[in-house]
Each structure stands twice: as C-alpha cells, then as structure tokens.
C-alpha cells in the first residue's frame, strides 16, 4: 500500500516539476473564459433584448429558448475544455516513452501495473483540477456577464452545483482517457494528432451524422464526447443537434460509466500493447 502511495506521489511530482501543467491550465482558462464570457454576453443579450435577434443573425429561427442558459455557459468547461485533460494525460504518458524515463521509473518501482495505476489516479486528480480551472473561467466569467444582462446565473440553485461537480468528475475521467491513449499510442506526436483530430473533428462529425437517424443516434450516445455531455447534463453540442435530441440521451450516471469504461479499456489495452513490453 505504501509503495502505491509512493508511486502516486512520484507521478504528481513528475507533473508538477515541468512547466506543461500550468501552461495548459493557463490556456484552458483563457480559452474557456473567452468562449463562456462571449457567448454568455451574446445569448443573455438576446434573451434580455439588449441585443436584437436581427443583429445577431438569428431572426429566422425566432428567439431560441434560453431557459437553461447558465448550465449551457458553465458546461463549456467540459464540452469544449475536455481536450485539455486528455492532452495532459497523453503527454504525461507518452513523455515517459519519448524521454526514456520509463527506465528510472521502472527501476524505482519495478511493479509496472502499480506504476500505471498510480499514473491513472494522479492524472484523474490533475484532470479534476483542470475541471476546477475551467469552471473558474466558465462560471467566474460567465456568471457576472449574465448577471450584467439581468439573466439569473442560478448560482443559488443546488442543481447548478451538482452540474459543477459532474463537470469536475468528467474532466478527471478525460485525463484517464488521455493516459490510456498514451499507452495505446506511445508515439507522442501521433498521440497528440489523434487527440486533436478526434476531439476537434472526427467525433463532432460522427455525432452530427449519427443524430440524423434515431437508431444511429442511440449508438452515437455512446461516443465518448456524447457520454461526457450526458454525464454533465448540458452541452452546446446537444442543443445544436438537428433532431433536438429525438433519441433520449443517456442518464448522467450512465454517461459517467461509459466514459469510465473508455478510460479503463484504453489503459488496460495500452498496458498490454506498450507498458509491459521490454524497455530498451
């Protein structure tokens, strides 16, 4: 047990002794802050009449329903920000291969399964901290902006705080998916390309394509991004779906389990593919 705790401590030390974590956290904060602040201003402006729908170019569809504007704004933290925990998880893992630090790592902790387990636990916490950073941006900037347009930011609402908690959980799970991807694809460049291509391009297209038919929409619900949105319970992507969510989305806990299943499957698969191999 104490050797597992030592291994977890070492994994935290690895993250905290290089600059990557705070650079990523800073970019995450800026990105989510801009997005949440900007769109909160736009939507809240339309809703409160401060911005005319004509000026916003949404006149043809009439005034959209913004009944749940605060959750939508807050969930940018995960619906857009989830790529950051995936990146740090993948970089933390592929970096060990790239810089050949698996050698000193496995010399200090010869039980490799335990090292990977420690990495999963440490990165879950780091991902959750990224969730807190992203929420500091989406709530910290989105709420005052909505307030300024006389839209209730719903911060006294218990449901909002549940949402925030689920976002933190989702971000932690995404970091484990990053670890899993990193052991499945130890080549750092390939891993980063996969993260960016999948999260920014492939999955959004798949979700859009799947949403046109009810049967494919059900399958689409099990895509990792869709599962994450189901876990969180609000996302700009589900709002934009053409069938308006004809196929019922997964429950939050189902979404969470699907996300966890992806994370564990990738990690266990990667253990066999690269982690337990010869370190030459």
């Amino acid at each position: 047990m104490s050797s597992l705790l030592n291994a977890i401590g070492a994994e935290f030390a690895k993250i905290l002794t290089t600059r990557l974590w705070w650079i990523l956290a800073l970019v995450l904060f800026g990105y989510i802050g801009l997005l949440a602040g900007g769109l909160a201003a736009l939507f809240a402006g339309i809703q409160s009449g401060a911005i005319s729908p004509d000026a916003a170019g949404t006149s043809s569809g009439g005034i959209p329903d913004f009944g749940t504007l605060p959750p939508l704004v807050y969930s940018f933290a995960s619906s857009v920000g989830y790529v950051f925990p995936v990146l740090i998880g993948a970089l933390a893992t592929t970096g060990e291969f790239r810089h050949q630090t698996l050698t000193p790592t496995f010399l200090a902790s010869p039980r490799r399964g335990q090292v990977l387990g420690a990495k999963v636990i440490a990165l879950f916490v780091v991902g959750a901290v990224f969730g807190v950073v992203a929420l500091a941006a989406s709530v910290g900037i989105g709420a005052p902006v909505m307030n300024a347009f006389d839209v209730d930011p719903m911060l006294s609402d218990a449901a909002t705080w549940w949402l925030i908690g689920r976002i933190v959980l989702a971000m932690g799970l995404w970091a484990i998916i990053g670890v899993g991807l990193g052991v499945l694809v130890p080549n750092q460049v390939a891993s980063i390309v996969i993260v960016l291509a999948f999260t920014q391009f492939v999955e959004p297209l798949l979700r859009l394509a799947a949403s046109f038919l009810e049967v494919t929409a059900r399958i689409g619900n099990f895509l990792p991004g869709a599962a994450s949105d189901a876990l969180v319970g609000a996302s700009v992507f589900t709002m934009a779906s053409p069938t308006g969510g004809a196929a019922e989305a997964l429950d939050w806990w189902q979404g969470g389990l699907v996300l966890l299943a992806y994370a564990l499957a990738a990690t266990v698969g990667g253990y066999a593919v690269s982690w337990k191999r010869d370190v030459t």
Binding site: G9, A10, H99, Q100, P104, L107, A108
Partner: peptide, 22 residues
C-alpha cells in the same frame, strides 16, 4: 545518458524517484 525529461532540474529529476522509492 538520456533518461531525463529535459525540462526538469537535476534535483527534481532525482526527487521524483526518491519519492517513488520512499
């Protein structure tokens, strides 16, 4: 001679593994 993360200081590099080994 190459098992290091280039962005980590020598003390931090060793610190990681002292922690791992308790």
């Amino acid at each position: 001679a190459a098992s290091f993360h280039p962005g980590r200081s020598a003390a931090n590099h060793l610190g990681v593994y002292t922690r791992a080994a308790g």
